[in-house]
Each structure stands twice: as structure tokens, then as C-alpha cells.
Simulated assay, not measured.
Amino acid sequence: MAKALYARDPWICHLCRKPAEERELSLDHVIPVSMGGNNSLANSAIAHRKCNYARQDRPIQEFQDSITDNSEWLLSLAA
């Protein structure tokens, strides 16, 4: 499934929309499993490990609304 995700979402984190290297990425569930999501390709996307961890099981919009351009961990993604 990882190859299909990288082809569909070419090295871009679906949470912060910043580019990433393969070693920085993880699989994220668009709808968290804890909220009824499944492991299908349609419910999967690539995300920075840091973004995925920070999001936890919140809805995507809630996570995106919580990040700011000066979030310390978000700035570390650009380094």
C-alpha cells in the first residue's frame, strides 16, 4: 500500500502540506480507526511522523486549525 500512497500523494504530508523525505513519513488514517475508520487505501494518506503523532485521533480540520506557522515542531519539519 505504501507505493500506492507515494504515487497518489507524492511525498507531501496530507496534514501540513509540506514536502517530506521517505524517512520522515508514516501512514495516517484519514478517519482514525478509533472513530470507525478502516485500513483501506481510500482512508490512508502519508504524513510526517511528527504531524501524525501531534494529530493523534483528532479530525483533520481540528488538527489543521490548531497548528500555526510558528509551531516549534512544524518549523523543525523545514530543517
Rank of each mutant, 00 (worst) to 15 (best):
D69V: 10
E21D: 12
C16T: 12
W73H: 08
G36D: 05
P59R: 13
D69W: 02
C51I: 01
D57K: 04
L25F: 07
D9W: 00
S76C: 11
E22R: 14
R23T: 11
L25G: 02
K18P: 00
S76L: 13
N52C: 11
S40W: 08
D69H: 05
K3G: 00
V30C: 12
L5Y: 04
L75S: 13
R58C: 04
L15F: 14
S40C: 10
P19T: 10
A78N: 14
I31M: 09
E72A: 12
Q56M: 07
A7I: 04
W11S: 07
I67S: 05
R49M: 11
R55T: 00
H29F: 14
N52P: 09
P59D: 15
A45I: 02
A2V: 08
G36Q: 08
E24H: 10
Q61D: 15
W73Y: 12
V30K: 13
L41S: 01
K3W: 00
M35V: 04
I60V: 12
C51Y: 06
D69M: 03
S71V: 08
Q56L: 09
L27F: 01
R8M: 05
W11K: 05
I46G: 10
S66K: 11
N52H: 07
Q64D: 08
S76G: 12
Y6C: 05
A4V: 09
A2R: 13
A54R: 09
C16L: 12
I31P: 02
S71P: 00
A4S: 05
Q56C: 06
L25K: 02
S40L: 12
